[in-house]
Amino acid sequence: MTDEVGVVTGDLTVVTELIGDQAHIRVQYTGAEEWYTVTGGPLKGVAGDQRRLHAAMVRAVQNGLPEGLEGVELD
């Protein structure tokens, strides 16, 4: 689920930006120009390894996020 266009499916690119203790998660259709913010972001109070966080976000997107980031497990 994204703020801008709702549900997106298909071949997606995921970017995870860690700014301070917040993680900003965006997706785009691979090869497109437009980026969409995953609903519920940014995740607050995030600390630790950015690679681990990004891997968790990619898994979450692959599994579908009908409610956005609410309830996403980072481990």
Rank of each mutant, 00 (worst) to 15 (best):
T2S: 03
D3K: 14
E4I: 10
E4R: 13
T9M: 10
G10S: 07
G10E: 07
G10Q: 09
G10F: 14
G10K: 08
D11N: 08
D11L: 01
L12W: 14
T13G: 10
T13H: 04
T16Q: 10
T16E: 11
E17R: 15
L18E: 12
L18V: 15
L18H: 11
D21R: 14
D21E: 14
Q22E: 14
Q22I: 00
Q22V: 00
Q22W: 00
A23W: 00
H24C: 10
H24I: 15
I25F: 06
I25D: 05
V27K: 07
V27Y: 03
V27S: 07
Q28D: 00
Q28S: 12
T30V: 04
T30D: 09
G31S: 01
G31K: 07
E34P: 05
W35L: 02
T37C: 06
T37M: 13
V38I: 12
V38R: 03
T39C: 06
G40N: 08
G40R: 09
G40L: 05
G40W: 09
G41L: 01
G41T: 04
L43C: 09
K44R: 15
K44N: 12
K44C: 06
K44M: 08
G45R: 10
V46C: 13
V46S: 08
A47L: 03
D49R: 01
Q50T: 12
Q50W: 09
Q50H: 13
R51L: 10
R51F: 03
R51K: 11
R52G: 05
L53H: 10
L53E: 12
L53A: 13
H54C: 14
H54N: 15
M57G: 04
M57D: 14
V58K: 03
V58E: 07
V58H: 01
V58D: 00
R59I: 07
R59E: 14
R59V: 10
R59A: 15
R59Q: 14
V61A: 13
Q62S: 14
N63T: 09
G64F: 07
G64C: 03
L65Y: 08
L65M: 11
L65C: 03
P66M: 02
P66R: 05
P66A: 07
P66S: 01
E67K: 13
L69W: 00
E70N: 04
E70M: 03
G71C: 09
V72R: 02
L74M: 10
L74N: 04
L74C: 08
L74H: 06
D75R: 11
